[in-house]
Amino acid sequence: MAHIRIKNASVEFPIYHANARSIKNQFIRISTGGKVMSDASQHLVVKALDNISVNIEHGDRVGLVGHNGAGKSTLLKLMADIYEPTRGTIDRDGKVSPLLNIMQGIETESTGYENIVMRGICLGLTRKQIKAKVDEIAEFTGLGSYLAMPTRTYSSGMQIRLAFGIATSIEPEILLIDEVFGAGDADFMQKARNKMVELLSQSSIVVFASHANDLIAEFCNKAILMDGGKVIAFGKVNEILELYQKQHPHN
């Protein structure tokens, strides 16, 4: 059964002061006996996630809420194994499909078709499997013969159609989503929404970070409220959203 179990995990970013990071100063420090520049070697550390413990099990659809900088995206990246915890542990079972930045990996000089193939290979598909996907993506994006053109000739809306079509052409087990809605014309938005619902129902675990509380209420059964890199509360979606709204009445 798919699961993500995080225990006392922290993610700390070292901020290398311009002084501390260059080799020159490492030398200076050695030659001056470590006194003169000693303050420069004490790197600032930003604690993006602070002692997080969360268990997510099969069937959970978890919404991540919290204001900007609360640590939602970092938590998703921790779950995706992009950041390994600097403290604590994470145990994950199941194939993770992150949908963190849909424009990621779209090469503007390459054609739409080439982009589909490239992404497919990156996801570990064979040429044959990709070929089977191409028609499906072509139909979904509605880009027609534009797919044979370099993506730099696309309008931004068309680029989003392609990116979204490619990014969602997966069969996810654990799906991690970071704010993917928000662009494209109304017609495409409806399509995108349907696609997302389809994707959500296929996956055994979904973690979904968003500022759109109505989407979270619609798609999720659980939610995590984050603030300052900490998990403030984890529970049923309506209770958490209520709590969040109480704290931030403007949302």
Binding site: K77, D81, I82, Q104, C122
Partner: peptide
Amino acid sequence: AGTIKQIKL
């Protein structure tokens, strides 16, 4: 860097 921060390879 862009890829490393978005997909785990």
